[in-house]
Each structure stands twice: as C-alpha cells, then as structure tokens.
C-alpha cells in the first residue's frame, strides 16, 4: 500500500441522512486529487472526514476505516490535534483570523510550540514567501489581515497552514470566492505546492479539476461513481453517470 490515504468501506450519516455510502478510494502521495460532483453529493463531507472536521456537526456517525500513512484516523483513540496538524484545510471563504498578518501565520506555532521570537520571524517569512505574499506584505506584517484582498486572504490562509508543517492539504472549493485571475494564480500556487504536499481539492468547477488535478474522483448522491487519472475521467469515463456529468448534462 503505497497510497497516502486508503479509505475502506466508509459510511457516514448525519442523523438519519446517509451522506456517504461505502466509499472505497486510495489517494496517492504528492499528487492533486480532485473530488467533483453536483451540490449535495457529499464532496465536502468526504473531505472533512480526513481531518475529522465532521466531528463538529451534531449527530454525525461514521463507520469504516480511513488510513492515513497506515493509521486509522477514525479510531476513537486518534488525537485530533495531531491529526489536524498533519492534515491542513483551506476553506471556501478565506477565513483569516481578526488578528495581524504576522499573528495569523504565527498562530500555528503559538498553539503547538514554544518558540523563540527569531525563529518565529523566520517561519512567518518562509511561509509568506512560499505563497508569494512576502514581497507585497513584508512592510505591513502588523496590519490587520482583514483588510487584504480576497486572493491575498486565501493565500494567507494557505501560509497559515504551511506554518504548521502539514503533509496533506485539504482544499474545500478554495477559489469559489475569487475572480478568474486570482483563481489562476492560486491554481499556479497549488501546482508548486504539489512537490511537497499531497493535495485533495473539492471543486464544482470541472474545468478547474481538469486543469490542476492528477486524479479525479466523481461523487454522486453519496456514492463514489468513478475514480481514476484526470485525463481518463475527462476523456474516456467508464460510467454513464460520469460522462453525463462532465459533459454538463446535469449538475
């Protein structure tokens, strides 16, 4: 099993609603995997299984196994703090904290480590450079992060993640609030991040999935219909449902 993540017979219920049905999928390391499907098909739910963010929802129930690097994260003994440090998440709406730019990036270090001022400065600089914000923002690190543009905010949220040193990045429609140019630049950033991180992105923008992902998974009504290399899914899908969806017949 060389895969980064192995999902085995995963079922998830929100109270009575069966949101994920018998999901079986392997996700490869240092690739971008896109999860596509119409609204309400369970894409975000599946994504939120990987860092157990679904635990916050009242009445959620999970069954099955999800191995990340061989560890079953659905095990009740899983330490959520450690898990979420390793599995970072970028949200649909950029959600920088109402703190300074510096403190946003430093947040992860502050909650996880006791660290000296110097090395903190270094980490902040490295992470902001990594998301190409450093040159623009290095003179206003102590200004509020809420005044940035949407794209800058989303980059900042990614920088904030990188500071925690995750190895898996979950992105929940990270570009849906952005204009096309910003989207293109964030996608560029994702391609660069791919060399160091395993990325899973949820998107209902099929072109985006086709542009950036190596592999694509298609979900419909809580079931995984098809999963394979992106080129295969988009040019030669095996299932009728997949073909109908990517050719825009519904969704």
């Amino acid at each position: 099993m060389s895969s980064k993540i192995n999902v085995n017979q995963l079922n998830l219920w929100y109270s009575d609603f069966h949101a994920l049905k018998n999901i079986q999928i392997a996700i490869e390391e240092k690739q971008i995997t896109a999860i596509i499907g119409p609204s309400g098909c369970g894409k975000s739910t599946l994504l939120r299984v990987f860092n157990r963010m679904n635990d916050l929802v009242e009445g959620v129930r999970m069954q099955g196994e999800v191995f990340i690097d061989g560890m079953n994260i659905l095990d009740s003994k899983t330490d959520l703090v450690t898990l979420r440090k390793r599995v970072g998440m970028v949200f649909q709406r950029p959600n920088p904290f109402p703190l300074s730019i510096y403190e946003n990036v430093a947040f992860g270090q502050r909650i996880h480590n006791h660290i000296t001022k110097n090395s903190l400065d270094e980490i902040v600089e490295r992470c902001l450079k990594c998301v190409l914000l450093w040159d623009d923002l290095k003179d206003k690190l102590h200004k509020s992060a809420l005044h940035l543009s949407l794209e800058q905010k989303q980059r900042l949220c990614i920088a904030r993640l990188l500071a925690v040193k995750p190895d898996l990045l979950l992105m929940d429609e990270p570009c849906s609030a952005l204009d096309p140019q910003s989207t293109a630049r964030i996608e560029e950033l994702m391609r660069e991040l791919k060399t160091d991180y395993t990325i899973i992105i949820v998107t209902h923008n099929m072109q985006q999935a086709a542009r950036i992902s190596d592999r694509t998974a298609f979900l419909l009504l809580g079931e995984l219909i098809e999963h394979g290399t992106t080129s295969k899914i988009f040019t030669n899908p095996t299932k009728k449902d997949t073909e109908d969806y990517i050719s825009g017949r519904y969704g």
Partner: peptide, 20 residues
C-alpha cells in the same frame, strides 16, 4: 469560520476560544 479555521489548524477548543 474563525473557530473552524482555528480547530482545523489543530488548536484545542480552549485555544480557539482564547486566541481567536
């Protein structure tokens, strides 16, 4: 979303309350 963001970074409940 603030609370979610903090928790997703691996903060404990109290850290999210206190810091964000």
């Amino acid at each position: 979303s603030y609370k979610e963001g903090a928790l997703a970074l691996g903060s404990t409940k109290w850290q999210a309350i206190y810091r964000v």
